[in-house]
Design a protein around this nucleic acid. Sequence first.
DNA 1: TTGTAAGCGTTATCAG
DNA 2: CTGATAACGCTTACAA
Lengths: 339, 339
Amino acid sequence: MSKVGIREVAKLAGVSTGTVSRILNDHPSVTNELRARVTAIIKDLGYTPDPSARSMRGKVSRLIGIVIPDLTNPFFAELVQSAEQAAANHGYNIIVMTSFDHAAKEADRIKQLTSRKVDGIMLVPSNDFHTLKLPKGLPIVVVDRLMPGYSGIAADHRNGVRLGVEHLLQLGHRRIGFISGPGHSVPANDRLRGYLDAIEQARERADGTRMAGPPLIAEAAFDYESGRSAGNYLLARARNERPTAIFASSDQQAIGCMRAAHDLGIPIPAALSILGFDGIPLASMTTPRLTTVKQPIQDIAAAAVAVLLNKQTAPELDNPILFACEILKGETTAPPQPD
Amino acid sequence: MSKVGIREVAKLAGVSTGTVSRILNDHPSVTNELRARVTAIIKDLGYTPDPSARSMRGKVSRLIGIVIPDLTNPFFAELVQSAEQAAANHGYNIIVMTSFDHAAKEADRIKQLTSRKVDGIMLVPSNDFHTLKLPKGLPIVVVDRLMPGYSGIAADHRNGVRLGVEHLLQLGHRRIGFISGPGHSVPANDRLRGYLDAIEQARERADGTRMAGPPLIAEAAFDYESGRSAGNYLLARARNERPTAIFASSDQQAIGCMRAAHDLGIPIPAALSILGFDGIPLASMTTPRLTTVKQPIQDIAAAAVAVLLNKQTAPELDNPILFACEILKGETTAPPQPD
DNA sequence: TTGTAAGCGTTATCAG
DNA sequence: CTGATAACGCTTACAA
């Protein structure tokens, strides 16, 4: 059943193993006639090349490594799943590893992948990732959390957030709170910048309109519980002082914030609009459904795989490939009530 | 940097490559003294054995394949993550694949894994999985969705559900609705059986107490939307007729059901208790927090890996290893109001 | 207990 | 364009 190797094929086809190998690897210099005949025999015999032997002799393992901080995070889960699909389409498989946002573990995992001879690594760097030396010669594409000095692929967080703020502004909101991500996280800072951009811009064009003053930014981790307490913080003031809309840096934060509002007796979206970021499936499962800025996860994954397989030219240093985000309208945003 | 092979080690240690190999593989017949010396040199040189060569020559790849229906499902995501950790502890890595509950894709993935020479496969079979021939000689452990005729590892769904029903009974509920999973799914049927067990048992010991009559079971897919419509179905009757508690077969169903109740103006848990099953992180993120029966995912994953690595004897045919579930108390269950 | 040497299944080089 | 043939880095009889 499984004893069939390249030699059997060669013998049965009356050619040499070399020829079979060339056919297997789409080497151009083989007669079409021959190629057809041998291919038929291959299929007939049910022969499959042995990946281990291939990756030992050749320099290709058809294996891609993915290192992410946390598979439990729906965003990363979808990223991995999309990458798996994209890779499978090219005959590649995926080895996943979780770093738990721990730099040492991450370094170890990358070393493992290197020794596995993976053909490339897709990396979402851990947050305390600072001085890791990436192995040279091995294609690595940094995804989502872009690192200065490395090429990468990600959603355009900054413009995505700007888009979201515009949406709130157009609804008539003027006191727009922002729950920021952890300060040491690159995408968190990008999102914050997007918020500041949009607010600044609104201020400039708002001749008479006042953009309200009190602190409207709260820093928090990306998770649910942090979003909740940040929400509490932002909402803990008189009605005509507190924000009429809150933009959270992640859907999980947004959902936590919804809960905070609920506990304070503030109806959504009547008295408070909430906008999330990410577009995870969970967003459409809340009551009311969360309006959110969706990242094109599949596109990101596909692009990353394409780059690793040299199907697409890699992004240049400090000049990442960015994908546009779009607003996914739910039921948590509406025009503000008059004070 | 990377040119160091077993020969370098051997030369530098003044031994043969064979000896080094034996040391690498913990072969018993090597002097401790020698072992220590060579090990030191290995570490010193930063030598790492080439996995491709190893898996080609030997019969071990230190690779485990995992095939699941959907990585986006938080339950499976956690399963994979836990397995990855467990495997890493033994020097093993994980190749993940998604079948999308599609039998053909699943078969293809399994074949790929076989040719990769993985040392074992952890499989959550797709639901339209009927007549797949599993490759012989390759350890496969079926997880979560047990298939009759195969050995497997899973949570004890039946007893878990029974536990949940007991909880509701103790709170005083007598009309307990049940949202079942899709009829063709094995765990769904196990859960349904658990419900029937508990109800039956309650009926027997309930001398005078009446266990209410009207249809209290609704079949639905495991997802959110299905849970919602099943909830609507069960709740669409007069207050003194409808269930005072609903047990859903998945957390996602339960959350959908919460939304249905909400839309009908039925307060939770005041007028309706809701109990979920799975214990995904999402369960603690709803408002109010969902009470649920938690599956010990990490234990399941660890056991599956242990079996694949022969660290633990495999479960016998038709005699699966089952792990107990436990109730995770949230805020959606309370004593029923009088009619 | 340790050394020697023969492959494992492919790919790549080099002739023909 | 195709056929021999030598590696690739390691494990494992078999010998010593």
